[in-house]
Design a binder for these strands. Structure first.
Lengths: 149, 149
DNA sequence: TTTGATGCAAATGGTTTGCATCGGG
DNA sequence: CCCGATGCAAACCATTTGCATCAAA
């Protein structure tokens, strides 16, 4: 079910799967549930073989273009990326719960917006190709420690 | 129905309503439907009396803190702000349709996420305080010119 | 007169770009 | 050999901050 690098290689077409690009991919495969920023990937890469930050940015652009990563904006001033698994859970098909206290990010697996999109498309004659949805609040862990809830 | 500056003055409490702050407010009142960035406000202010960009940033923070503006992130690399009208249409209560072709931004007035939030809160034990939702696609004007639709 | 507000310029932080170099096909 | 890929440093751009000055209570 889970994609491996070998399956991804075919997507590289005219591009070269260099050691740096492979390492970035490996980092995403080892952190499937995370939402990594360029800087975080840079730090993780140093454990194996350092890659220039500029190369990381260029690689992220490429991997997004190849449809392997999706770029997310949580409003924290940096772009984050996550692996597109099986072509199904790109950001169009799941959403994020962002805890304002501890910063933890959880995924909401199902896409709850289908009906909503239909309504909006009909009412505004607007053809939707993507959406962006985050919920900000307090996660179950942090709620437990808060007496006002 | 529409708020005027005079009604807003009372919200300034310990803060001074300086000419610069008043001008920024006026610009928002004259552009109720727009989603202005700091730079755009800066340009608009120059028509009357120039304000330093740093002052604009500080004023935007203040007006947000006072509950007069809400900050929105459309993922275009800059923060945008809109007037909170009657305390009702802050970003929690309406969403945006962003046209990928012409860049036009339309508002979706109703808050369609209430049921969704309930589901998410129950299922994930996550107490939501805010959300962020944009739809990207093609608006009615641009759709008309596209034969593939 | 005292404290908050302003404006300028410098600093910051994420991201991009120019360019010389490297290395696989 | 050639062209794409890399790495470094400089450039960029939105935003923030330090600091001297200004102005209203």
């Amino acid at each position: 079910m889970k994609k491996k690098i070998s399956e991804m290689e075919s997507q590289f077409k005219q591009y070269r799967l260099t050691p740096q690009r492979r390492l970035v991919l490996e980092i995403f495969l080892e952190n499937r549930e995370k939402h990594l920023s360029a800087e975080e990937i840079y730090q993780l890469s140093r454990q194996k073989e350092e890659i220039g930050l500029a190369t990381i940015y260029r690689t992220l652009d490429l991997l997004e273009e190849l449809g392997l990563l999706s770029k997310i904006n949580f409003g924290d001033g940096r772009s984050r990326y996550e692996l597109i698994q099986d072509g199904l859970n790109d950001t169009h098909n799941h959403h994020h719960l962002i805890c304002l206290n501890c910063g933890r990010i959880q995924e909401v697996e199902e896409d709850l917006l289908n009906k909503l999109e239909e309504i909006v498309e009909r009412k505004h004659h607007f053809s939707i190709v993507n959406h962006n949805l985050q919920f900000y609040g307090y996660c179950n862990r942090c709620n437990n420690g808060r007496k006002d809830l």
